[in-house]
Simulated assay, not measured.
Amino acid sequence: MELLALYDGNCVLCNKSKAKSEKLDWLGRVKWLSLQEYEKEGRKPAFRAIDLRRELHVIDGNGRIYKGFFAVRKMLLQFPVTFLPALLLYLPFAVKAGIPIYNWIARNRFKWMGEMCEDGSCSI
């Protein structure tokens, strides 16, 4: 099953995360598309663009949308090297810890990367 990962193409952290994920995606299970490209294709997202600038979105083959922690968890299951550790993210306690950790990283991404996004979206 191929997943579509939507990200903010102007975000430094998003682009670096995409590059690292692509190196792990030996089986080619995740297709990456920036929000900017998605909108140029005339697609209308089932979510607000500002939400995508806040967190990663993944759409599966059935059209189901996964956001933030849930998107990362879904993607990590697709990569051979992260498959087993990703299973731990499906344990009940993982959601309680994973969501706040993901949100904290997303809120502070400009601090982590040491540079701002091209259009200021990292400040969202």
Rank of each mutant, 00 (worst) to 15 (best):
S121N: 13
E118W: 13
K31P: 01
D119F: 13
M113A: 08
L6C: 03
G120F: 11
K23A: 12
W112Y: 13
C122E: 07
G28A: 05
L89K: 06
L56V: 10
N15Y: 01
A86M: 01
D60S: 00
N108H: 15
V58M: 02
A19Q: 09
L4Q: 12
Q78V: 06
S34A: 10
K96T: 04
A19P: 01
V72I: 05
M1F: 06
P92T: 00
W104D: 05
M75L: 08
F93E: 02
M116Q: 15
A94Q: 06
R109A: 12
W32Y: 14
L35Y: 12
A106S: 07
G9A: 09
K74H: 01
A86V: 03
A5K: 01
C117T: 12
L84E: 10
F47L: 14
K96F: 06
S21T: 11
N108P: 12
A86H: 06
G28C: 07
N103R: 14
E115N: 09
Y102V: 08
L35S: 15
K74D: 01
K23V: 12
F93H: 02
C122V: 14
E115L: 10
A106G: 03
A71Q: 01
A97M: 12
P45S: 04
D25E: 02
F83Q: 01
D51T: 09
L3F: 00
K40C: 06
R29D: 00
R29M: 02
R54P: 09
F47Y: 15
K96H: 05
M75K: 03
R109M: 11
R29C: 01
N15K: 05
Y66W: 11
M75V: 13
I105Q: 07
L84T: 07
E115K: 07
A49Y: 14
D8Y: 06
G120C: 10
A19D: 08
S123P: 01
P92A: 03
L24E: 10
I65S: 14
L77D: 02
L6F: 05
N103G: 12
G98K: 05
K40G: 08
G9R: 13
